[in-house]
Lab assay of single mutants.
Amino acid sequence: KTYTFRVRIVDEETGEEKEIEVTAKSEEEAKKAAEELKKKYPNLKVELE
């Protein structure tokens, strides 16, 4: 079973919002993916929905 999570990304500089879908095998995995995004884009606000 896989879970699909919507991750909302807000670029703090431009105020631009993007939504991406993360497919993960567990909620834990999705959280890790969101953390990776935060590391990659430090000025983005990442929200897991």
Rank of each mutant, 00 (worst) to 15 (best):
T2S: 10
K31Q: 11
D11Q: 02
V7N: 00
V22A: 01
E35Y: 08
V7L: 10
V46L: 09
K38V: 12
K31D: 03
E49L: 14
Y3N: 06
E19C: 15
T2M: 14
L37G: 01
R6L: 13
E47V: 15
L37V: 04
E36H: 08
E27T: 06
Y3M: 08
E19N: 08
I9S: 00
K1E: 12
T2R: 11
K39W: 06
Y41P: 02
L37S: 01
S26H: 03
K31W: 13
L37M: 06
K25Q: 12
P42A: 04
I9P: 00
T2L: 14
K18I: 15
L44H: 13
K18A: 09
E35L: 11
I9T: 03
Y3R: 09
K18S: 11
E21W: 15
T4M: 09
N43M: 06
E28A: 11
F5C: 07
K18L: 14
A34M: 15
G15A: 03
E28F: 08
E13K: 10
T2H: 09
Y41G: 02
E12S: 09
V46N: 03
L37P: 00
L37K: 01
A34T: 10
E19S: 13
K18M: 14
A24T: 05
L48A: 05
V10A: 02
T23Y: 14
E29C: 11
E21Y: 15
A34N: 02
F5A: 03
A30W: 09
L37D: 00
T2I: 11
A30T: 01
L37I: 13
T23F: 14
Y41V: 02
T14K: 02
E28I: 09
E35V: 07
A30E: 00
E13A: 12
K39Y: 06
E12R: 09
A24C: 14
K38E: 05
E17V: 15
K1M: 09
K45D: 04
T2C: 15
Y3P: 15
E49Q: 13
R6I: 15
N43C: 07
T23M: 10
T14L: 03
Y3T: 07
A30S: 02
V46K: 04
L48N: 04
E16R: 05
K40Q: 11
R8V: 11
E36K: 08
E21P: 03
E19G: 03
K40M: 14
K18F: 15
E12N: 08
L48E: 05
K39E: 06
E13S: 12
E28T: 06
I20S: 01
E19D: 05
K39I: 11
D11L: 03
A34I: 15
A24K: 02
K25A: 14
K39M: 09
S26L: 01
N43G: 12
A30F: 10
L48C: 13
K1Q: 08
I9L: 13
N43E: 05
K31A: 10
R6T: 13
E27F: 15
F5Q: 02
L48G: 05
I20E: 02
S26A: 01
T4P: 13
K25H: 14
V10L: 10
K40R: 10
T14A: 03
K38W: 07
K1P: 14
I9Y: 12
E36T: 07
E29T: 03
E16W: 14
A33V: 14
R6C: 14
K25W: 12
I9W: 15
E17M: 12
K1F: 07
V22R: 00
E36L: 10
E21S: 08
V10N: 02
K18H: 13
A33D: 02
I9K: 00
K39C: 06
K38S: 12
K40V: 07
K45L: 12
K40L: 12
E13V: 11
T14Y: 01
E19Q: 11
K1L: 08
E19T: 15
K31V: 10
A34P: 00
E35K: 05
L37E: 01
N43Y: 09
K32S: 08
Y3Q: 08
E47N: 10
P42K: 05
E36C: 13
E29L: 07
I20T: 02
E17T: 13
T23C: 13
E35Q: 10
E28D: 08
E47D: 10
T23R: 09
